[in-house]
Write a protein that binds this DNA or RNA. Structure first.
Lengths: 198, 198
DNA sequence: GAAAGTTTATGATTCAAATCATAATGTGTC
DNA sequence: GACACATTATGATTTGAATCATAAACTTTC
């Protein structure tokens, strides 16, 4: 996260997107640095038969879509507002200037990428290893520990629908529903009024 | 890739690992920056029933295992020498000093992480979407374009065994064998004396 | 150059998640 | 509060990759 003021100083603009709006599409060239001010943005892919895969969900203070600003690649996924959202946009060239003149910010940016890489490394190995229950627990534990910084059993109220969990893990809704029930029976999670707690 | 001389200047040491040696293990704390001088190193996970997943294979000039040096996380995977290998190791603190005093190197490091993130984003979505043939093509195309920088049909000789392709894609050997044959029939790849060309 | 070990190959069977179908429950909206 | 819509739920069936089994082709080692 980069301070809003600093971003505005370098020419960043706050833009409002209504729920469902697309900020950029898979395959496009990256032009801007994006950071959520309010609301939530997801990055996702659709495969050939329309099935969605959610790469990540980003909330207030989190940036997304930075890798293509550094490496010479196109966006690997789409970005879409999950709710009405405000997002700071800063043009690539100004963003790079900002980093060049603020080494501490650059280092924190590197740290952010490193964390995201850590998450992806876990997910890719986990998803490849099959076993739905495992996959689900892993993503819940990741969100709990690394995103919400929570500890202690059932302290994490999962604010995701079963469908979203499915799209994050590459499973199908029905499978997630059955797997979460099985996990509840095993005492790994709790379900209170349809919400999952971990 | 950071120049060998620079790494040595900052106190890096060249260490030789025999084939099969483990450089670090999943869950350990990261102490060093690693860069391959000669040979090949893979990073991998083993799931509960012993199935391997290869996160990446790193050859001369490539670094690996950097994310935990930046973010406060443990290694998400093991590192193992695929052949007798020489590796430069530089202690974390000296590595961070190096970056602080060489902003250009830091930026290239960020670029490396960004590229790796791009690859993981593709793989995680691809793996989750099932369809073995797709998964295989995707990893081959990635290796061809982004690692070996090749263009033109069948210009890329894949120097991986079917088992390694399986471990990179989360499939099983038999599935890879059948899928590559199907892909050959469709003209997507060529197989000459058992080697895959893409 | 024979033996041992890898890698590729191929058929038969199993199995678990996807798919299909249908409904109950909950939430939001006019 | 009635209607539309989203989410959760559950059972039956299909399907395709994993698994199991076995062997051929190739490579390495002594």
């Amino acid at each position: 996260m980069i301070s809003t003021n600093l971003l505005l100083d370098f020419g960043g603009k706050i833009i409002t997107y209504p729920k469902g709006a697309q900020l950029f599409r898979e395959g496009e060239t990256a032009l801007n640095y994006y950071q959520v001010v309010s609301g939530e943005v997801k990055m996702n892919n659709y495969n050939l038969d329309g099935k969605e895969f959610i790469q990540g969900i980003f909330a207030s203070g989190q940036s997304f879509g930075e890798p293509p600003l550094f490496a010479d690649v196109k966006y690997p996924a789409n970005a879409e507002a999950l709710s009405d959202s405000e997002v700071i946009q800063l043009h690539k060239s100004q963003f790079l200037e900002l980093l060049a003149s603020h080494p501490d910010v650059h280092l924190r940016m590197t740290e952010t990428l490193a964390k995201r890489l850590f998450y992806k490394a876990i997910m890719v190995s986990e998803i490849s290893s099959q076993e739905p229950e495992h996959r689900i627990l892993r993503i819940l534990d990741y969100l709990k520990k690394h995103v919400h910084k929570l500890e202690g059993p059932f302290s994490f109220k999962v604010d995701l629908t079963r469908q979203q969990i499915a799209d994050l893990t590459g499973l199908r809704v029905e499978t997630v529903i059955r797997a979460t029930k099985a996990l509840e029976k095993k005492g790994e999670i709790k379900i209170k009024s349809r919400k999952v707690y971990r």
